[in-house]
Amino acid sequence: MLIDLDHFKDINDSWGHDVGDQVLFKVARAIEPMIDDTAMVARMSGDEFMLFFPYAGDDPEQGAANAMATATSIKEAVAQPIFYDGNEFILTASVGIALLSDHETSAERALQYADTAMYEAKRKGRNGIAFFNQSIADKAQRQIGLNARLRKAVDNQEFALYIQPQVDVENGRLMGGEALLRWVNADRVTNMPSEFIPLLESSGLIIDVGHWVIRTACEYIRNFIDEGIWEDHMRLGINISPRQFNDPQLIDVIEHSLRSYEINPAYLNFEVTENLMIEDVESVIKKMAEIKALGAQFSIDDFGIGYSSMIYLKRLPFDWLKIDREFIHNIHHDPESRGVVEAILAVSRQYGLHVTAEGVEDQQSLEILKTVGCDTYQGAHFSMPVSVDRFREYLAA
């Protein structure tokens, strides 16, 4: 069993390693009563503890139940407030468990299995417990391989920008689109964003790729202008993750791209999710203001499913709000979803925000959006994300 303290690095960074060591000592003391005399306990490194139980039960089912009970007790013990030097520390733990039969594998392999399970617990949001199984191992191996290929993909320029058109709800006029990252590897296999974007984030490669996205989006707009098919009312949405937003070079990259391609900053609409608002809100406001001072716009993406608070709409300088597809998908047969959409539109009007509905798939949903007064929409009803050449055809039509 491996126990890893979530975000423990924050304590070392904020209070120093001496305080961190004292907190670790208190965590170890809290864990001790949760285990019996037969167990072996060791601090592996940093904020990670290893527990070895020579006997967990008479059969796999009993062993799993006993291991879960022990892990739960340990997790609850870790979660108790720790007081040191006038400060209170609240910790959580991610626990990975590997159950092995007699002489099934080496100690090294057992530790590897528990480590894989522990990272699965972290992947699912931390403060959890995960058991090792072959499915988790296969997934971990795929991610390692995918991560290696991603690094080559950056060097080999295997990424492409697709664009999903955004359309005026009332009259069907094309209003621009949202730029979406796609990865087509050397074998012409398209990898799903849900697979590779989290890896770009965790590896830090999202910074370099994000710079490329901004430059490429500006290049596309410049080409559309030169071809006489881009109109002043149009905007191109660019997604910015929290890690990208915190990149010290972000504003310089935006400024340089705007100058290099000589485009109106108002053509760019940076889309951020509600996750950004759980960071330092004052710093977020300051940086958004600096980017808006260039002339660009901001959208709050996937509104309604995260940590949203109406106070964010009041304090942060958004121009657009995007209603999450979950509410749009059910709008024509779920009164509650329609009520949520109408409430979001009412609040948006109060704060002077334009609204885009995501995931519009049929005419019936579009008609309801017309009735309730939504501004623009995107979704399969008009078009899925398309290549830049296909989007060019939409612009020229």
Rank of each mutant, 00 (worst) to 15 (best):
I221L: 14
R235P: 09
V27N: 11
A98W: 01
R315E: 02
G57Y: 08
W15L: 09
G177T: 06
V41W: 02
D208I: 09
N223A: 15
G57N: 10
L258F: 00
D18H: 06
I3R: 05
P60V: 11
Y119K: 14
A98H: 03
R43N: 07
K75C: 11
I97G: 08
F196T: 09
Y312P: 03
T371H: 08
D319E: 03
S203A: 02
H333S: 11
D18N: 13
W183D: 02
G20M: 01
E104L: 09
T92R: 13
D18V: 15
E262L: 05
I254P: 04
A42L: 10
R235F: 05
S383M: 06
M40Q: 03
T105P: 01
E290L: 14
R29I: 08
E195F: 09
D58T: 10
G373C: 09
D36R: 15
L180W: 05
A186F: 03
Q249H: 12
V95Y: 02
M384W: 06
A380S: 14
D334F: 02
T376I: 12
A71E: 03
K370Y: 03
R315P: 00
D85Y: 11
E271C: 01
F89I: 15
M68S: 14
L174R: 01
D18M: 10
G176L: 05
E262T: 07
D362V: 08
P60K: 10
N133K: 04
L321D: 03
D58S: 09
C374I: 12
E219T: 13
Y377G: 05
K124E: 12
A121N: 03
E282G: 07
D13P: 07
P265C: 04
A114E: 09
L205S: 08
S309M: 01
I129R: 04
G352E: 09
W320A: 04
A93G: 11
M34C: 15
K286G: 10
I311N: 09
A346T: 15
S308K: 06
